[in-house]
Design a binder for these strands. Structure first.
Length: 198
DNA sequence: GTCCTGATGTGCT
DNA sequence: GCACATCAGGACA
């Protein structure tokens, strides 16, 4: 059963750690790819590092400043996929009740099914380099701009509830941003080898 | 392992 | 112009 929109209709800072352990699933003609989420980051509306920061809410009748961040207002469970550094797609899930704005960036997963497919899309030597970064996992999972604005609560691309394990969740400042660096809004599974290298 | 650089599109100022 | 929620590859240790 895919995680429902209600799962994402909570505070971003609740959803980001709650997604750890969930299974990211992509059904492709070549077969199913799955991976366990091991690292996320939270971005909220009052957060200078968020693409929805300062953007007026269209629902309330005001005009959005960037086209890029518009999807962030489309409601919980919507995907937000965008390009960084001109070549990598990053996958986010929209959070908060509709009309608010927030997103969780999926930064790393642990490959489970479809590893051969992932290897074909990436030229990584070591298995752990297949999906241990936000730009790497979108390559491995064949996610690009065509997924922007789609619901992540139904096939072909969605999350499933993960097994409850005795994982320790750790936090740290977010990676690769220049604004609001001090906020400890990166969440990851302590000791998991598929967390991004830093 | 570390440090450094180049590739590349989009949305700002 | 320039900054950017990145990564791979090379030089060196």
């Amino acid at each position: 059963m895919p995680l429902a929109p209600s799962f994402f209709a909570r505070s971003t800072l609740e959803v980001a750690p709650a997604l750890l352990g969930a299974i990211l699933v992509h059904d492709l003609p070549e077969g199913r790819i799955t991976g366990r989420v091991v690292e996320t980051e939270a971005y909220t509306q009052d957060d200078p590092a968020c693409h929805g920061f300062g953007v007026k809410n269209e629902v309330s009748g005001e005009i959005a400043a960037h086209r890029r961040g518009r999807v962030l207002f489309e409601g919980p469970g919507t995907s937000y996929v965008y390009l960084v550094y001109g070549m990598y797609w990053l996958l986010n899930v929209v959070t908060e009740p509709k009309g608010a704005c927030g997103a969780v960036l999926i930064r790393a997963v642990e490959p489970l099914e479809g590893i051969d497919q992932m290897r074909q899309r990436r030229k990584a030597r070591r298995p752990r380099d297949l999906t241990n970064g936000p730009g790497k996992l979108t390559q491995a999972f064949a996610v690009d701009q065509t997924f922007n604005g789609r619901m992540l609560t139904e096939p072909p691309l969605f999350f499933e509830e993960g097994e409850v394990e005795n994982d320790v969740i750790a936090t740290s400042p977010r990676i690769g941003i220049s604004k609001a660096k001090e906020r400890p809004w990166r969440f990851f599974i302590e000791g998991n080898p598929y967390v991004s290298p830093n």
